[in-house]
């Protein structure tokens, strides 16, 4: 995806992400037979948070939150402009590590617990995203996202195992049940984000929209040149993740890591082997 469309997508990413987040909340409510909040609810929250009296634990904590947001946007920008996939994945990891450093920099136990659990969640989903990067390399001969968008036969068919593996780890990535131990509202009350408030929580809130967009944009990659197929796949995953989120309860970290890695790593590895043989 290049040129004007790519740049427009990058600039409007927080807006699109916000709408996506609103859609998710609405869909989740409809699945529970509730009316749900209006579609624009995330933006109402956004404006309300600006208006709150600023409170900050210490300045570095606040800045790390903002860096988390910027890092997330940069990772998304590299992906949408057709850049290097490894760069995308590691940029994204860097953005998350800002949040983890912030979580450990305050004295709240909940925050520290959240930081540790966030690290475990990264352990659960990161390997699969790397395997996907390698898979794309085998198919297109390059780590560039641009090359993947030019593949005439959709990578989805060759990389079926990795697609299933990514669907399995998706809840861990988006902090959804059953793998939402890193956030765990009502248990550790948001974990890493507990000490943020007002304007600084804003950064985390919008970073979450970008994270949604990032995860689903990564899935669109599996459609190759046929981006309609990619979008359809992303929509299916969106429905599936929301359904699973509504239907399951939270697992603890041992179960999370065992299930995600135990199922998805072998699947991904076998799939990579098969691609290698062909």
């Amino acid at each position: 995806m290049g040129g004007v469309v790519g740049w427009l997508l990058i600039l409007l990413a927080p807006l699109i992400g916000g709408v996506l987040y609103g859609m998710e909340r609405k869909l989740k409510a409809r699945m529970q037979r509730r009316a749900g909040p209006p579609l624009m609810q995330p933006f109402y929250d956004f404006f309300k948070l600006i208006d709150k009296r600023p409170m900050v634990v210490h300045s570095l904590h606040g800045y790390l939150g903002i860096l988390h947001f910027l890092g997330m946007w940069l990772a998304l920008a590299v992906l949408l402009s057709g850049g290097d996939l490894l760069m995308v994945i590691f940029m994204h990891l860097l953005a998350n590590s800002f949040l983890i450093v912030a979580a450990f920099s305050v004295r709240s136990v909940y925050s520290q617990l959240g930081g540790m659990r966030q690290l475990l969640a990264i352990l659960a989903y990161e390997p699969i995203f790397l395997l996907a990067g390698v898979g794309f390399y085998f198919l297109s001969g390059s780590f560039e996202a641009k090359a993947v968008f030019e593949l005439s036969s959709a990578p989805l068919w060759a990389m079926w195992g990795i697609v299933i593996a990514i669907i399995i780890v998706m809840p861990a990535k988006l902090k959804k049940s059953p793998f939402d131990m890193a956030e765990a509202h009502q248990e550790i009350i948001g974990g890493a984000e507990i000490e943020y408030s007002g304007l600084f929580y804003e950064a985390l809130y919008t970073a979450r929209w970008l994270e949604y967009l990032f995860a689903y944009a990564f899935i669109v990659l599996f459609g190759g040149a046929n981006w309609l197929l990619g979008l359809a796949l992303a929509a299916v995953v969106f429905l599936l993740v929301t359904l699973v989120d509504n239907a399951t309860t939270r697992l603890n970290w041992q179960q999370t890591v065992a299930i995600t890695l135990g199922l998805s790593l072998p699947l991904g590895a076998i799939n990579l082997l098969l691609i290698g043989i062909q």
């Binding site: 749900g36 909040p37 209006p38 109402y44 409170m55 009502q186 507990i194 408030s197």
Partner: peptide, 16 residues
């Protein structure tokens, strides 16, 4: 009663 339709969320976090 679904108060989330009014945008109300139960946060459980005093700072937010």
């Amino acid at each position: 009663y679904d108060v989330e339709r009014l945008g109300i969320l139960n946060r459980g976090n005093p700072k937010q």
